[in-house]
Amino acid sequence: MALEIRPGPVLADRTTLRLGGRALAEIAFDRPEEAEGLAEALAGLGGRPLLLGGGSNILAGDGELPLVVVSPRVKGEPVILRQRPAADRIRVRVGAGVKLQRLVAWLATQGLSGLGGLVGVPGTVGGAVAGNAGSYGDSLGAVLARVRVWSPETGLAWIGREGFSTAYRRFALPGVAGFFVVLEAELDMAVREPIELRQEMVRHLSDKKASQPITAATAGCVFKNPPGASAWRLLAEAGFRGKRLGGVGFSEKHANFLVNYGGGTGREALALVRAAREAVRGQSGLELELEVRVAP
């Protein structure tokens, strides 16, 4: 199949925060090899590319946006490879378009440990790799063995651990200056009893439901935790727990979650985020770094 080019999508319909105006167009594809046509397609459409998987972790602006949405839909069941890098590790390959929660649940049924802490985290595998998603001590970067990517610099390529770097909420490809697309990932997973994994995940999910607005229209955590501090605590101390502007506000449950309570706009959300950063800087002297991606 060739790349599928569609008229511009409304980002409010495609993001978990339910905010955002209309992009110029969308490029969608199902097979990794089709990514090789992206450079030509993007050049023809103009605009800045915005990679969109499950639509989480994005704060989009209003109105007509100079963006071209890129949607990799590389799915299929996760696969256990015969290769075993170490006696206690099993390698799994999964497409970037697979829902992260589908992968987390599947790994538990297979008795494969390392991502159970991410139960309840929205989005797709590709987005989780690109943002090095993490929770309860587990992260994609800790188990990522190889990643298949496309970028203007690398073309379509499998890249091992020596070719990428990960840090807190960060994944980088040295030599790649800007846009890249995660297409597939290979993970090295530890082996544990499935019943233990399921019980642990139930506890994690229960804790998250009690402390986070995981069923609300939210993009997840707005800010990264500064070294040695918690963003939610800094925001609460600055008076932003439950603070609203128009239809958006910081959650009462967790001060680092921005929620669209209905009828919110990107302008309101961005203004509230700016005000929160300024208040925290003024009170603590710490600069909060965004975890959500602002588009454009």
Rank of each mutant, 00 (worst) to 15 (best):
G8I: 08
D13L: 14
R14Y: 11
T15W: 05
T16F: 06
G20F: 13
G21H: 02
G21T: 05
A28Y: 02
A28G: 06
A35M: 12
A35S: 15
G37T: 07
L38N: 13
E40M: 00
E40I: 03
L42W: 12
P49Q: 04
G53N: 03
G53W: 00
G53E: 05
N57W: 06
A60L: 13
P66F: 13
L67A: 12
V68E: 03
S71M: 04
S71I: 01
S71R: 14
R73D: 11
V74R: 02
K75N: 00
E77G: 05
R82W: 01
Q83M: 02
Q83V: 14
P85M: 15
A87E: 15
R89E: 08
I90F: 02
R91C: 11
R91V: 01
V92N: 09
R93I: 13
R93W: 07
G95H: 00
G95W: 12
A96S: 14
Q101P: 06
R102C: 02
V104N: 05
V104F: 11
W106T: 06
W106I: 00
T109P: 03
L112W: 07
S113C: 15
L115S: 07
G117R: 11
L118M: 10
L118T: 03
G120A: 08
P122K: 05
G123F: 10
V125Y: 03
G127D: 13
G127L: 04
A128R: 03
V129E: 08
V129H: 12
V129N: 10
A130G: 09
N132R: 09
G134Y: 12
A142T: 00
V147R: 03
E153G: 04
L156Q: 12
L156R: 13
A157M: 04
I159D: 00
G160F: 01
R161Q: 14
E162S: 15
T166Q: 13
Y168S: 04
R169H: 15
R170S: 14
P174L: 01
G175S: 00
G175Y: 06
G175L: 02
G175D: 07
A177G: 07
A177L: 13
G178E: 15
D188W: 04
R192F: 08
E200R: 09
M201E: 11
V202A: 15
S206C: 08
D207E: 15
K209A: 10
S211H: 13
S211M: 01
A219V: 05
G220N: 07
C221P: 00
P227N: 08
A231H: 07
A231S: 15
R233G: 02
L234E: 01
L234Y: 04
L234F: 12
A238H: 11
A238L: 12
F240P: 02
G242M: 07
K243W: 03
V248T: 04
G249C: 12
G249S: 09
F250A: 14
S251C: 13
E252N: 00
E252C: 00
L258M: 11
N260A: 05
N260I: 10
G264H: 01
R267F: 04
E268N: 14
L272V: 04
V273R: 08
R274E: 14
A276P: 04
R277H: 02
R281Y: 10
R281T: 14
S284Y: 10
L288P: 15
E291F: 10
R293L: 14
V294I: 15
